[in-house]
Design a binder for these strands. Structure first.
Lengths: 189, 189
DNA sequence: TCTGATCCTGAACGTTTGTTCATGTGAACC
DNA sequence: GGTTCACATGAACAAACGTTCAGGATCAGA
């Protein structure tokens, strides 16, 4: 029967869910396959998550919270806006590379920003972060003057393309430096 | 019983399938709902398509062929590489705006490039087109010297972000000019 | 050794799925 | 009127789905 601690089983299930959701999408992923991947019975999954939806939400929330925390760190000690922007882009790309499956889940299910409020809030916050960096850059005279809100939108959507490519074609090598410099070239004085 | 010509029914089904697939994804879309949306019985769908998969493939193939044709037109009368690049980007963005549902289907099901060979071929061809424009630009002295293959990859992935954003956030206005100029700024001498 | 708490199982239930097929309908020809 | 043909229907089937639940297993403390 393979007795384990509750928290360990929960972790196993979450980890299996990431794999299965990222491969088959929300609808395509079956609770049976998730359970099998976690080496656990179907019933056990329902011991830790009320239903499929809660399992999915928990997954997404965990990862977005993590990403939020990292963004906060980078923003906290912002000295040079150029450096901050580079760090931000590099962080997002590194994160995408490390958590391909998570990005895939989001893309497959909701086209990146559609769907639940939690996600929308996250993406809005990310855009505001970029906008803040730009404003700081303009104020300090390092960035050329521009419509910070408009440019932040464009940068976020460019970044989105980079991230999608990193996830979808892991072979096509994308250095964070290259991507960062492409974005900055139009931004620096 | 609502007797119609065969080709008209087929069109109705295809059109309904685009709607349903784009909203629910491949797995989430049921043949019953597609039939209902097309105001046709389930059996009728199987009169024109062997199964769900063939219906999906037909859909994707139609749209990609159309996009291929437009790309060909733009490339055919390439005089000024800068103008060609602008046209290409504008065309892709316009197409995305007009065929949101088609892009959504692709994104939801396969993360944009994953999946069937047909799609991979399409994206490779698109990248080669961009590369060709860049080479022409470099040769004519209008573009700065760069690794055409590498840069074409970056442009395609940037474009991908633009397109995704156009589809996913139709409100966030993206002018083709802005996107084009962002890309060209780093490319022009 | 007994007891309660915790962890786990997989058969079972009701839905929904993709797909098939016997049957029906309307128009066009003889 | 009879026959043929393309077009259309929706009940029926097996399979897979999310979810439940009666029961079994394994531990810590008494």
């Amino acid at each position: 029967m393979n007795k384990r601690s509750g928290s360990e089983s929960k972790k196993r299930i979450l980890s299996a869910a990431v794999k299965v959701f990222s491969q088959y999408g929300y609808r395509g992923a079956s609770m049976r396959l998730i359970a099998k991947t976690a080496a656990v019975s179907v019933g056990a999954v329902y011991l830790y998550f009320r239903n499929k939806e809660e399992l999915y939400y928990t997954l997404i929330k965990n990862k977005l919270d993590d990403l939020d925390a990292r963004t906060g760190e980078i923003l906290r000690d912002m000295e040079d806006p150029e450096e901050t922007m580079k760090n931000f882009i590099a962080m997002r790309l590194e994160h995408a590379r490390r958590h391909r499956e998570h990005i895939l889940i989001q893309v497959k299910e909701n086209g990146f920003t559609f769907g639940i409020k939690m996600k929308k809030d996250f993406f809005r916050h990310q855009r505001e972060v970029v906008e803040k960096i730009i404003r700081k850059g303009i104020a300090s005279g390092k960035f050329r003057k521009c419509d910070a809100e408009e440019v932040s939108k464009i940068i976020i959507c460019t970044l989105r393309g980079f991230i999608l490519s990193v996830v979808v074609e892991p072979d096509a090598l994308f250095s964070p430096e290259e991507c960062g410099s492409l974005i900055l070239k139009g931004l620096l004085k």
